[in-house]
Design a protein around this nucleic acid. Structure first.
Lengths: 255, 255
DNA sequence: TCCCTACTTCCACTGGGCGGAATCGCGAAT
DNA sequence: ATTCGCGATTCCGCCCAGTGGAAGTAGGGA
């Protein structure tokens, strides 16, 4: 594309997307140099592309000259099917669960080898929770993640099991142990974690099924599972079936 | 960029962004041909770019081969400052207003010559409302729009006043009439509409002020203003000041 | 079977994009 | 007041990534 490319093979589009990918929860605002660094682009190249993104509204520039994700990208993002479909349908059921238990409730799907959190209800932060809406976490260290992994294609399982990085001292990093847990998830219909993602937090999760199989997972976070595991699982399974029914009803009706 | 460009001057990035811009509330799912048509790109070009966008996760492709906004774009969009800043701070105040009146509540900012809705609470759809979160409407036909327009720079006002397109039979299309209304908005501290955007819906809106001036607007939609205009305005002004205070407190603290 | 539409692949041409280097601008240190 | 240093911005000659017409393929309706 140019006479003096440093990394031939990189397309313009991939570079522009790399600039967007430079932003994450811990980096909501970035200077031009940081952007260039994180997107692995020469500074002048980043400068030119960023100017175009700002011009369109994909990025915005604040008073100090730092960049952030722009309004236009925000509202285009809201058009995504996850926002309008599953998330909206499930919302009342999440509220029911939350109202009944007052514990943190999660709705998540698998995106590649990660959990993507679609929704979260957390009133009083009695239990520390890492996730937030739109965030991504590893599949092997979360309740919803284990459910989604248990129902994932073999190739995804292989990929995940080959790289079980430790998050807390209780994170499961032995492929064999996790494989046995996944089998149990399939048998029992729910998954649990105990301080595997963040200390002081345990979780339970159940699958949400559609015609095509498991499409999402419903999870809750509590300080301990000792007392009310059975009660939680039962409540969540009711909610899960409700969501599944709402899903198939919506699919039958015009999209 | 290529030997046979049909529209020289268009950059690759602008073409990729045009593909994203092809999606809106009435076009959440598009075929390749529709995309190419709406983005004004030759089909092979659209095909190539779309493939790259899908690859990254900016777009997704469903079972019928139609495209939609992808999960990755959704979650990147959630990192936008509008989502984390103003919207989050204002949320409890919107809920208070909603709880007290049970009428539709809106939080909006001006983006160029349009209103951008950041949040909306609408329990029972007793009044038909067009807006939804992330949607854009004209400044001159909405309550929040009039507030934001009244406090906008002269150039924006000129641009908007020169093109007052009709939405309903009651939409104000005379620049003089609107100009007089805007003056009254500045004097009284609130704006109203009567069936100017959708029949059967009236609205009241007040500004939300920060150091830099008016940064957003708070609005409510009701079937009629006859009875409780004063009551609504008072409640909204209280909420507005609360949000303003929360804003300046947040700005003082670490971002 | 044929036709039609929508999608996908191919490929020769060339100007849009590249990025090192130079410059600017601003705040901090001297 | 002057220098220093760092980040942002601009410049510009080089050349290959991107382009899109044309040809090929797939699917589905008559």
């Amino acid at each position: 594309m140019a006479g003096n490319v440093s990394r031939p093979g990189a397309t313009v589009t991939s570079r522009a997307l790399a600039l967007l990918a430079a932003f994450d929860e811990d980096h909501r605002r970035l200077s031009l140099s940081e952007l260039a660094e994180r997107a692995d682009l020469p500074l002048p190249t980043a400068h030119r592309l960023v100017a175009e993104l700002v011009d369109w509204g994909a990025l915005s520039r604040d008073a100090n000259g730092r960049y952030a994700i722009g309004r236009r990208l925000w509202d285009v993002g809201l058009l995504a099917p996850v926002q309008t479909g599953l998330r909206q349908l499930a919302s009342p059921y999440l509220h029911d669960l939350y109202g009944a238990t007052l514990a943190t409730v999660h709705l998540a799907v698998r995106d590649g080898t990660e959990v993507l959190y679609l929704d979260r209800l957390a009133g009083n932060a009695s239990v520390p929770v890492v996730s937030s809406i739109g965030s991504r976490l590893p599949l092997h260290a979360t309740g919803v993640g284990k459910v989604l992994l248990a129902h994932a294609p073999a190739e995804v399982q292989t990929a995940v099991l080959s790289d079980l990085h430790r998050v807390t001292p209780y994170t499961i990093t032995q492929p064999g142990t996790l494989r046995r847990q996944l089998a149990r998830v399939l048998r029992d219909g729910y998954a649990t974690t105990s301080e595997e993602m963040s200390l002081g937090a345990c979780s339970v999760a159940v699958p949400i099924r559609a015609e095509a199989g498991v499409v999402a997972s419903l999870g809750m976070v509590v300080p301990s599972l000792r007392n009310d595991r059975a009660k939680l699982v039962a409540a969540m399974q009711v909610a899960s079936r409700g969501i599944a029914r709402a899903l198939s009803a919506a699919r039958a009706a015009p999209d």
